[in-house]
Nucleic acid binder design. Structure first.
Lengths: 411, 411
DNA sequence: AGGCTTTTTTTCGAGCCTCAAAAAAATAGT
DNA sequence: ACTATTTTTTTGAGGCTCGAAAAAAAGCCT
C-alpha cells in the first residue's frame, strides 16, 4: 500500500519545502525559511546554497525597506525568473488563449485567438491548439528549451489524473487526451486541468489569507461549475475532476438541464436557465446559448422592476442555496467565491440564496457564510494553470532527475 | 504552512510503516515487509529487531503451511498481543457497550448495559459511561497499565478533531467533550468518533479487498448517516465529523425531518419517515421512535402485498437514490454498503433507488454501482473504534514518547 | 551422510542528511 | 574605533538507509 521513506527522499522533500517557501513568501531570508519550515539554519543554508548554485534561486540583496535593524542584514532569496518557464493553454467557448510565464510567475508572452469550438471537427480543434502552442514555443525571442511544463485548462470534465478532457460543453467531442497529445507533440510534460479547479487554485494563489484551507469557487456562467479546496488541497473526484455541483439534483424530475437530465441545479441557475425562466419559456425548452451582453441586460432589467426577470434570478438563488446547503451538509460551511458573468448579478441572487440555505442543515450559520464575486473567469483560469504548472516545475527541479540535469549543466 | 521533515522523523515513520505492514498482512516475513514498503532488507531487519526487543512484535516461527520450499524458511512477524490494549465505548440509543481489545485485535473483555439515554441528565449520562469504563479498567484480570487508548463511538455529530460529541439523536444534550472527560478521568488518551465513520473504518478493516480506496457506508436506521472513504482515507468535514448525507435536501420545503428542517433525505428514508408514510400520516407529523421489530414487521407486510407500506419503501428508495446521485456528482460513483435495520429491507428499497439514481448525473453507470447490506451496525461500530484506537497506538508506540516508555521498561 | 543450492536474515562500511554549536560576516550604535 | 546584535556559514558529531557480503537455516542431490 503506502511506501516507506527512502533516505534520499528526505533531501528532495526538504528542497521542495524551501522552494515552496520562497514561492509563497516572495523574498524570505534564510532565517525566515528556517522558521516557517521548522528545519535548522544549517540545513536551509546548505539547501539554498545548492539551489543558488543550480540557478534556481537568486540572492536579492535589495531588502532596503526593512533596514534600520541592528545586526547583519538579511539576504532575501528569490526565484530566478530564468530558471524555467511554463506555458498555459486555456480553451473556452469559441476562444483559445496561450501564455508563457517565467519561473517567477510573470507573463512574458501571450497570444489569443477566436475559433468556432462548437462545430470544429476533432482534428481541427486539436490542430488549432497545437498550432498556437507551436507559434509561442518557436518565438525567437523565447528560449524554447526553458519551457518545462504545459498546463491546459478547459471547461468541462477531465479525468482525475489530469490527462484528458472527458466531456466539455464547448464541443460535442469527447475523450480527447490533450495531455498526451501535447507531450507527444512538444516533448514537454503537460496536464489537462478542469477550469473550476484552476479558478480555485488561482484564488488560493492570489489571496492566501482569505482562501487558505477551505473554500469553494463556483462558476456562474452558461453552466454551473465548482472548484473545491478542502484542508488546503484541491478536492477532485475519484475518477474525474469531480465536483459537479451544477448537476446535484435540486428538484427531482424538474427543469430540463443541458446535460439531458432533469432537476439539476444548473437547470435553474445556469445562464440559459435564467434566460428561459425570464422569457417565461417552458422548463422543458431546449437550453440555448445566451451572450454575456444579453445576460447583463437581463440583470439590469431585473434590477429596474419586479417581474419575470427578477423572479428568474430569485429561482436561481434558491437552487444555488439548496445546492450549497446539501454540499455544506457534507463538508461543513466554507467561504464561497462566485465567478463568472452571473456573479455580477449576485445582488439579485443573494437574497433567495441566503433564504434557501438557511432552511438547510448546512446553513445553520448562514449569516456567517461569506460570498465574494469575480465576474471575469478567464484570467483566473489562466492564473490557476500557471500556478499549477509552476508547482509541478518546483517538484521536478528538486527531484533527482531535475537535480541531475542541473548538475550536468554546472559541470 | 507545511513543515519540513526532520531527520528523526524518518525512523519514526519507517517504524510506523513496518508496524502497519504487520497489522495488515497478519504474519509477514521480513522479506515481505521489505517488498511492500519498498525499504531495504537491512532497514527492515534493524527496525524489526528494535520492535521485537521493545516487545511490540514477536517472531512466530509457526509458518508451517508454506513449507516445502527450498532455502532458509521465513520467520513470520506478528503483533505481540500483550504490547498494549485499547478500550472501546459505544453509546447508542438506550444502550452502552464497552470492550477491551488486545494489541493484536482480539476482544479480551466486554460489558454491556441498558440505560435511558433520552431522559438522562448530563451528569448521569457521563457518569454512567465513566462507571462502566472504570469497572473494566479495574478488573483484576486485566493489566490496567496496558490500556493505551480509549475510542468512543456515538451516533450523531462529532467535531473533526474527534474530541467532542456536538449533537446526537440519542440525547437532548449537546456539546459533551467526552474525549477530554475520559482523558481527565483515566489519564488515557481518548477520542470521540462518529458512528458512521467507524462503520466505514470497520468495513475497510474487515474486507480490505472490497473496501479499499473509495466506498460509502450508509446507516439506514432511525436516522440516516454516512461514513465516506475517499482515496483510502476517511473523509470528514472541515469542522465536524461531516458527511451528513441524511440532511442533504431531497425536496425543498418537503417532509418534516427530525432535525426540524424540511425535505431532508432522512425525512423520507429514516425509519420514522418510512413508518409515517406507511401509516398514511401527514408529512408534517412529528417523528416518532419505531422499534426494530416494528420495522421488520413493516417490511414483511410490504413484501406481502402492494400497499402503502410498499409505497413507503419506494419513496425511501427514491430519496436515497437522488441523494446518492447528488453525492456521486461530487465525488464520482463508489461502492455502497447499507448498514442498519432497514438494510434488511433493501430489496424493497433498491428498485426505486436504482431508478432514481439513473436519472442523475452521478448515476450514469448506475448498473455497475454495487450495494452490500449488513443489518447489524453495532458490531461494526465497535470494530471500527477498535481499529481506530489500535492505529493510534501504532502511531504512538513508534513515536519518541512511546519509544522512551518501552525503552525504560526494557532497561 | 555430506556437500551443494536456495532463500532469508544479519552484519558492516560507505554515503548522506540533519543538527547544534561555534565561527564568520555585516551593520548600527556609542 | 570598538562593541553589541543579528544573520549566515562552517564544522564535527550522530543517525539513518543502502548495497554488498557474510552468516544462517533449511531442502535437494549424489
Amino acid at each position: 500500500m503506502s511506501v516507506g521513506i527512502r533516505h534520499d527522499d528526505l533531501r528532495r522533500r526538504n528542497r521542495a519545502m524551501v522552494i515552496s517557501a520562497v514561492r509563497r513568501a516572495g523574498q524570505p531570508s534564510r532565517t525566515e525559511i528556517a522558521a516557517t519550515t521548522g528545519l535548522s539554519h544549517s540545513t536551509i543554508s546548505a539547501i539554498s546554497a545548492d539551489l543558488i548554485q543550480e540557478g534556481i534561486l537568486t540572492e536579492s540583496k535589495a531588502n532596503e525597506p526593512t533596514a534600520l535593524k541592528r545586526g547583519r542584514p538579511q539576504i532575501g532569496l528569490a526565484l530566478n525568473p530564468e530558471a524555467a518557464a511554463v506555458l498555459t493553454v486555456v480553451l473556452s467557448l469559441n476562444f483559445l488563449s496561450v501564455a508563457v510565464i517565467d519561473y517567477a510567475g510573470q507573463v512574458i508572452a501571450e497570444e489569443q485567438q477566436r475559433l468556432d469550438t462548437l462545430v470544429m471537427p476533432r482534428d481541427e480543434l486539436i490542430g488549432a491548439c497545437m498550432a498556437i502552442v507551436r507559434r509561442r514555443l518557436q518565438d525567437p525571442d523565447l528560449d524554447v528549451g526553458s519551457v518545462a511544463r504545459i498546463a491546459m485548462g478547459i471547461q468541462g470534465i477531465t479525468d482525475s489524473r489530469a490527462r484528458a478532457m472527458l466531456w466539455s460543453p464547448i464541443t460535442p467531442l469527447t475523450d480527447i487526451p490533450f495531455a498526451d497529445i501535447l507531450e507527444k507533440e512538444f516533448g514537454i510534460p503537460a496536464t489537462m486541468e478542469n477550469d473550476c479547479n484552476m479558478m480555485a487554485v488561482a484564488l488560493q494563489w492570489r489571496d492566501p489569507e482569505r482562501y487558505r484551507d477551505d473554500f469553494i469557487a463556483i462558476l456562474l456562467s452558461h453552466g454551473i461549475g465548482m472548484g473545491l479546496v478542502l484542508k488546503g488541497a484541491l478536492f477532485t473526484g475519484t475518477h474525474s475532476s469531480g465536483g459537479e455541483f451544477g448537476h446535484m439534483i435540486h428538484r427531482p424530475g424538474g427543469a430540463l438541464c443541458r446535460c439531458g437530465r432533469r432537476g439539476c441545479v444548473e437547470a435553474y441557475a445556469g445562464n440559459y436557465a435564467i434566460w428561459r425562466s425570464a422569457m417565461k419559456m417552458s422548463e422543458d425548452a431546449e437550453p440555448v446559448d445566451v451572450g454575456d451582453a444579453d445576460m447583463r441586460a437581463l440583470a439590469a432589467k431585473a434590477r429596474q422592476e419586479d417581474g419575470p426577470e427578477r423572479e428568474a434570478y430569485r429561482r436561481a438563488g434558491e437552487a444555488l442555496g439548496f445546492g450549497l446547503g446539501s454540499l455544506f451538509a457534507l463538508i461543513d460551511p466554507a467561504p464561497v467565491a462566485m465567478v463568472g458573468v452571473s456573479a455580477a448579478a449576485f445582488d439579485l441572487i443573494e437574497p433567495a440564496l441566503r433564504e434557501a440555505i438557511a432552511q438547510t442543515a448546512g446553513g445553520q450559520h448562514s449569516k456567517s457564510i461569506s460570498f465574494d464575486t469575480e465576474p471575469n473567469e478567464l484570467p483566473l483560469i489562466r492564473e490557476g494553470c500557471a500556478a499549477r504548472a509552476l508547482t509541478f516545475v518546483d517538484q521536478e527541479i528538486f527531484a533527482p532527475g531535475g537535480q541531475a540535469r542541473a548538475g550536468k549543466h554546472v559541470a
